[in-house]
Nucleic acid binder design. Sequence first.
DNA 1: ACAATATTTGACAAATATCCCATTTTTGGG
DNA 2: CCCAAAAATGGGATATTTGTCAAATATTGT
Lengths: 227, 227
Amino acid sequence: MSSKGLFVSEAVLLGKSARTRARLMDAAAQLFARQGFEAVSVNEIARVAEVANGTFYVHFRDKDEIAGAVAFGIAQEVVRQLDEAMTDIDDAMERTSMATRRFIDLAGSEPDWGGALFRAVLTFQDLRESVIGYLRADLQRGVSQGVFTTEIDDVVIDTFVSMAMGALFGRLNGRFGPELGSRVAELQLRMLGVPARKAAKVAWREIPPLELHIRPLAKTWPVGRQP
Amino acid sequence: MSSKGLFVSEAVLLGKSARTRARLMDAAAQLFARQGFEAVSVNEIARVAEVANGTFYVHFRDKDEIAGAVAFGIAQEVVRQLDEAMTDIDDAMERTSMATRRFIDLAGSEPDWGGALFRAVLTFQDLRESVIGYLRADLQRGVSQGVFTTEIDDVVIDTFVSMAMGALFGRLNGRFGPELGSRVAELQLRMLGVPARKAAKVAWREIPPLELHIRPLAKTWPVGRQP
DNA sequence: ACAATATTTGACAAATATCCCATTTTTGGG
DNA sequence: CCCAAAAATGGGATATTTGTCAAATATTGT
């Protein structure tokens, strides 16, 4: 039934403690995504992770702590993948539309992570603010490049994020298909003042499919026990 | 401490049963708004409503039932107020921007209702679909009138809704002030193809403040006991 | 294989939740 | 004021959840 989650894949080479911790985080991510943070109990997380209930408390103080770890871990990985995909791209329209499309595609490729991330952004305002910070540079770059005619401030960025979040949600619920990313990216560009023709052209350009192939972290040892 | 909620205001003239039911719904709305649906217990609702725990079960089967009643009740009232405010308006830009602005202003004037509605739209997909249905006519009217150049379909409407929902959320969290409604309405109009100048003009037009002044419902009597 | 250390286990106490229902309180017509 | 119907009460049986801890098990360097 339970194929390995992404946190476990990332931790395969690590020590036992880290692997167990990863199992708990995968279980938590899955449950948060499917039921929402509040509906999930510590017991349930332990059960899905297939560890004893006491084991949970060895790794996390409480549900909030694991939620933070899950949110942070997912965000970190998604940002890493986005940065990687965008290193060579200079054009602000390309960059923002790539970010939106990949973000929304998370719902298709890794629905548990997508769902958990969605919930997390609603729960942790810090996280939303990080996202806003992350996007600010690219949106302002568009203004500098003369392609975005809307002045960029927190309201504009927040609305830009809301559009992507709403789309992620719609995709998670199966209301829309794989073309949603391009559709929404196009609407975002139009909102920012890009002419319709141009917006369509950029938003529908082919991009390599998103694959979150996890690279296992290097082995570490328990503290105070260096080989 | 506990000033009357809107459901109670609406029920002041009704029989005792209806008034108690309304107290429970006000308590539930407040708690759902502040903590999210799943985090709230039936016990807590009864405590905040200042009724005994068993009383809850006289009026509702379980938490889902009261959540549905709250969501439906709020949605109904908001729609009523919106319809009332828009009866005389023909212009699609005016109508959609009025709807967005009033909706977002809910967060300022009635944060408990705003918060509960926000959570409800995430929880009950039916509700989101009702909202989409509600907006479709006005958005299509804009196309007919030649002011919206973007073709209207479910993706566009859903994105339009996401922008308003995200703004409601931002306002609820105190990240933005009263001008947010106009800001977002303007961005929506630009997304739909309205020229920047025109969009700004419409979205910033003065509108009468939203006041959800509840009109008490007419008295009813217990079944099988007509006077 | 052994010893030392790291990790996991599962039972349990305390707290909290759900839902029921016999009893009490309130209501309003006559 | 009195009574019958309506409404509310709160105690309690049952279930679930949280968080702790002594004991059991697994891992690793030597």
